[in-house]
């Protein structure tokens, strides 16, 4: 980056966030599942919005 004269770049560059590429790759380790009917191998799982059955909760312990 030293080669570029930052003082002549648009302000958006001055305010941009700069991160090391190596750290980004590490954080991006994600898990995906396959659902044939949706046609993508990059589907994140989604939690159900409510409990399915009502057996186990910690309030009785």
């Amino acid at each position: 980056m030293q080669l570029i004269k930052i003082e002549q770049l648009p302000l958006t560059f001055h305010k941009a966030t700069i991160t090391e590429t190596a750290t980004i790759k590490k954080a991006k380790k994600e898990h995906f599942i396959l659902i044939k009917k949706i046609g993508s191998d990059k589907i994140s799982t989604e939690k159900f919005y409510k409990p399915i059955s009502k057996i186990f909760s910690f309030d009785e312990d």
Binding site: M1, E7, L11, K15, A16, T17, I18, T19, E20, T21
Partner: peptide, 22 residues
């Protein structure tokens, strides 16, 4: 290969930011 530059979107322009320009 070394760094990533990402926009922070819309931001307020300050006097200091302008000062730093050619």
């Amino acid at each position: 290969e070394k760094i990533c530059i990402n926009s922070i979107g819309t931001f307020k322009v300050t006097n200091d930011l302008i000062k730093g320009l050619e």
